[in-house]
């Protein structure tokens, strides 16, 4: 009795393979992490004497463009998984590559946005609004960076597994996709809360 079971095929009574359950649990904990920060936002805002309208400080069109970019990257992510299910490795490479490029575009735009804020002398210490803005978006950007690293691994050296163990590789892309959709979802909450409300 050596090998760990259910690394590839799902267990019958739970209907899940190990990594899928693992990533759902990890995401549950991420929900609590961002949930705590959103709660912080609410508490700071209701306790504040005045709270600026997000759009008076932040650039709404740039935020909107970034929202579109991330949603598109979620679509290409799921398409890369479908491509593997269709046994079309070339299409997988294309779609996952697009996902990575879109993520990098998001980060570049975010960096540009941060830079513009710094040039206007808007820093985390300027006000609690900017403090929570930089904390939430900064932590989210770190999650994007994490996703880019994982996806780049599966696009590059990690994709050799497609030859040796295709089912396992499809699972990995599915798990990476679940994470990526979560990161996308966080932004979908961040954008209206910070920029529009």
């Amino acid at each position: 009795m050596d090998a760990i079971p259910y690394t590839v095929e799902p267990r019958q009574d739970t209907g899940l393979y190990n990594a899928k359950l693992g990533v759902w649990l990890f995401l549950a904990s991420e929900v609590m992490l961002f949930g705590a920060l959103f709660s912080t936002y609410i508490l700071l805002r209701i306790g504040a004497a005045q709270w600026p309208l997000g759009s008076s400080i932040l650039n709404v069109p740039i935020g909107a463009v970034n929202t579109v970019i991330l949603i598109t990257s979620s679509v290409t992510m799921v398409m890369s998984w479908v491509a593997l299910k269709d046994k079309s490795f070339g299409r997988f490479k294309l779609c996952l590559g697009l996902t990575i490029l879109l993520a990098l575009a998001f980060l570049a735009i975010k960096g540009f946005e941060y830079n513009a804020k710094f040039e206007h002398h808007y820093f985390p210490k300027t006000s609690t609004f900017l403090a929570i803005y930089f904390t939430l978006t900064g932590l989210h950007a770190l999650h994007i960076v994490g996703g880019v690293i994982v996806n780049s691994y599966f696009w590059g050296p990690g994709c050799k597994m497609w030859q040796s163990d295709p089912e396992h590789f499809i699972n990995r892309i599915e798990v990476a996709g679940l994470y990526w959709h979560f990161v996308d979802l966080v932004w979908i909450f961040l954008f209206p809360v910070l920029y529009l409300l």
Binding site: S29, M32, L33, G35, A36, S39
Partner: peptide, 14 residues
């Protein structure tokens, strides 16, 4: 541990 520690992590970051 899974669900209670992240808020402390958030608090630690802040």
């Amino acid at each position: 541990l899974l669900l209670a520690f992240p808020p402390l992590e958030a608090a630690g970051i802040l």
